[in-house]
Simulated assay, not measured.
Amino acid sequence: MEDVSRPAGEVRRARYAVAAVFAVHGAVTGSFATRVPWIQDHAGLSAGQLGFALAFTALGASCAMPLAGRISHRFGSRTALRGLLALWTLSLVLPSLAPNLLTLCLGMFAYGAASGMADVVMNALGVEIERLLGKSIMSGLHGMWSTGALIGSAAGTLAAHLGSDARLHHLLAAAVLTVLGLLACAWVLDVQPAEDEEPPPRFALPPRSALLIGAVGFCAVFAEGASLDWSAVFLRDRLEGSPGLAA
């Protein structure tokens, strides 16, 4: 990337902006997780079919994440994040629109792909801000993601308690979060590649040194995904909780 000095005020604004991006990204996840039981009922799926469809989220993310670096290289970090974050917020509507297993699998693949690509670019910007500030801020940024997830899930809990249609809920949430995301992206760093910098490869095997930390990350995300995707279904089906309580 092009290594240029930046005014302290610009870096501070960029830090707050990318923190807001993390919160928006988390709010999408929270909004989705609370309505998984509704999505299951709407598509008429068994528990096994739902699990199969949910797996397409990870598949979409795994396939699309390697493309994020090239997109950022081609358009610059600000434009790339603006587009990818909008794709992620708008993809929230896809799962609730799916009437059957096939369409839900396709919707979850697109949902995961958009999530993964936006995630890569916003974390890369977080690392760049850390470099400019000379101190660690990633834990705070991930804390903002969790804050956004809590806010999104709180809104989803209210929607579920009121018995609202998840299609309407997710349409409204996607519209609000898209606007907030675009506003935040206006202030993130615009990192441009150097003129002679080669674009990153479409795919590269990780170094052996990354395998151990990758395994730790796999275990953490596996547990997180299982609890996130299945808690509301378990509370409703096994503990006979109300939709609002399950959410």
Score class of each variant (00 low, 15 high):
Glu2Arg: 14
Ala8Asp: 15
Val11Gly: 02
Arg12Gln: 12
Arg13Leu: 15
Arg15Trp: 14
Val18Ile: 13
Phe22Asn: 10
Phe22Leu: 09
Ala23Glu: 05
Val24Thr: 05
His25Gln: 08
Gly26Val: 00
Thr29Ile: 14
Gly30Ile: 12
Gly30Thr: 07
Arg35Ser: 07
Pro37Asn: 05
Trp38Asp: 14
Ile39Leu: 14
Gln40Lys: 15
His42Glu: 05
His42Val: 01
His42Cys: 01
Ala43His: 06
Ser46Leu: 01
Gln49Gly: 06
Gln49Pro: 00
Leu50Phe: 02
Ala55Gln: 06
Gly60Tyr: 10
Ser62Arg: 00
Met65Arg: 09
Gly69Arg: 10
Gly69Lys: 07
Ser72Tyr: 06
Ser77Met: 01
Thr79Ser: 15
Thr79Cys: 07
Ala80Met: 11
Gly83Thr: 10
Leu92Met: 11
Leu94Met: 01
Ser96Arg: 04
Ala98Met: 04
Pro99Val: 02
Pro99Asp: 03
Leu102Val: 14
Leu102Met: 11
Cys105Ser: 12
Leu106Ile: 14
Phe109Lys: 07
Ala110Ser: 09
Ala113Thr: 12
Ser115Ile: 08
Val121Lys: 08
Met122Thr: 03
Leu125Asp: 04
Glu130His: 06
Leu133Met: 11
Leu133Cys: 04
Gly134Glu: 06
Lys135Gly: 09
Ser136Glu: 13
Ser136Ile: 11
Ile137Val: 14
Gly140Lys: 04
Gly143Thr: 05
Thr147Met: 15
Leu150Thr: 07
Ile151Glu: 10
Ile151Thr: 13
Gly152Phe: 13
Ala154Ser: 14
Ala155Phe: 15
Thr157Gln: 12
Ala159Thr: 12
Gly163Met: 10
Ser164Thr: 13
Asp165Ile: 09
Asp165Arg: 07
Ala166Lys: 01
Ala166Leu: 07
Arg167Asn: 08
His169Met: 10
His169Ala: 13
His170Leu: 04
Leu171Asn: 05
Leu172Ser: 09
Ala173Ile: 12
Ala173Lys: 06
Ala175Ser: 13
Val176Arg: 11
Leu177Lys: 03
Leu177Met: 11
Leu182Lys: 00
Leu182Met: 10
Cys185Met: 05
Val188His: 08
Leu189Ser: 06
Leu189Asn: 03
Leu189Trp: 00
Asp190Gln: 04
Val191Glu: 13
Gln192Glu: 13
Pro193Trp: 03
Glu198Met: 11
Pro201Ser: 08
Pro201Leu: 09
Leu205Pro: 00
Leu205Trp: 08
Arg208Asp: 01
Arg208Phe: 00
Leu212Cys: 06
Val216Ala: 04
Val216Ser: 00
Gly217Cys: 11
Ala223Leu: 15
Glu224Pro: 13
Ser227Lys: 02
Asp229Cys: 10
Trp230Ala: 07
Ser231Gly: 09
Gly244Asp: 03
